[in-house]
């Protein structure tokens, strides 16, 4: 019954319409951005069609280098924290009864869907002087008086991890759900303690999935835009902030486009690496 190719006008339209929409509204915008990165800036407008490599030449300033380095650093740091906590968490999650799993998944997806504005606002309240956790520490006698912990590096880390943690769990969920339950059972039968089983058998057999998750979460964190602006100080701003700043406030669309193209190159290389890493299965089994 499955036709090999579409026949009739209506059938052709089912492919033609999505193809046209994606071409016009995704491929073309992308092409324009790529082209604009080689154009000149028009003061007060968007861009002048005039080929130049100046934007790429102007890219590598000290500020750009510092912001890029910080973006990579904070993204990697938060990815590490999230995978370190997310891996054992996801393992426990996949072993829960289905009903409880669904409750956890609802919480995780709800948090993941929240606007970054809202997450950043919630954490700035959470770390503020009047309503924050420091009040709790005062009550427990750990601090003398309430303190404000936002903005700052650790506030930024909290906010970034809050968004990245649910994402990490969703990335790790499929490989862990597919893990053969007999594997840990066998290890236990052979006398390994639960912790030894976890670290040798489970972590060991999913090493490539962990690496893939690290890179995926890292790339996801690179996209963070609003959280550094609210929870970080200006020295904690990321590349996404710099690009938007250039495009909107300095209205230098060509330079912003060149930054975005460079940034995309870095991201694509990382996602490509993650996919290669994710495909390789442990044990060399084909």
């Amino acid at each position: 019954m499955i036709a090999e190719r579409p026949q009739g006008a209506l059938a052709r339209l089912t492919l033609l319409y999505p193809a046209a929409v994606l071409l016009v509204f995704f491929v073309i915008p992308f092409g324009i951005m790529l082209a604009v990165s080689f154009f000149r800036r028009e003061p007060g407008g968007f861009y002048l069609v005039e080929f130049s490599l100046a934007n790429y030449g102007n890219l590598f300033t000290a500020l750009f280098g510092r912001v890029l380095a910080f973006s990579l650093l904070i993204s990697a740091f938060c990815a590490l924290l999230c995978v370190a906590a997310g891996f054992p968490f996801t393992y426990l999650l996949t072993r829960m009864p289905r009903r409880r799993q669904v409750v956890w998944l609802v919480i995780l997806v709800s948090v993941l869907s929240l606007s970054a504005v809202i997450v950043a606002f919630a954490w700035s309240i959470m770390l503020s002087q009047t309503a924050g956790v420091s009040n709790l520490f005062v009550r427990l006698g750990l601090l003398d008086r309430p303190q404000s912990w936002s903005p700052g590096f650790w506030a930024l880390t909290c906010g970034m991890c809050y968004v990245a943690f649910p994402y990490t769990v969703l990335v790790l969920y499929p490989p862990l759900a597919r893990l053969d339950p007999h594997l840990p059972e066998a290890a236990r039968t052979l006398g390994a303690s639960p912790l030894v089983t976890f670290f040798t058998v489970i972590v060991g057999s999913l090493r490539s999935a962990i690496v893939a998750a690290l890179v995926m979460v890292f790339a996801f964190n690179l996209g963070t835009y609003l959280i550094p602006q609210i929870l970080g100080k200006p020295q904690h701003w990321t590349l996404s902030v710099l690009i938007t700043d250039e495009a909107i406030y300095r209205s230098n669309l060509p330079l912003a486009a060149a930054m975005a193209v460079f940034f995309m190159g870095v991201s694509l290389a990382l996602v490509g690496m993650a996919m290669l890493g994710g495909r390789r299965r442990p044990g060399g089994a084909a």
């Binding site: 999505p18 994606l22 509204f25 995704f26 491929v27 073309i28 915008p29 992308f30 324009i32 951005m33 604009v36 968007f46 861009y47 790339a219 690179l222 996209g223 835009y225 996404s240 690009i243 938007t244 495009a247 669309l253 912003a256 486009a257 975005a260 940034f263 995309m264 991201s267 694509l268 996602v271």
Partner: peptide
Amino acid sequence: LLGIAPFMLPPVITALGFLAFWAT
């Protein structure tokens, strides 16, 4: 694959592409 791509890139890149398109 094309339909999945906008979601995989850092959002600021897709957003800038849209900005360039609508401005044009």
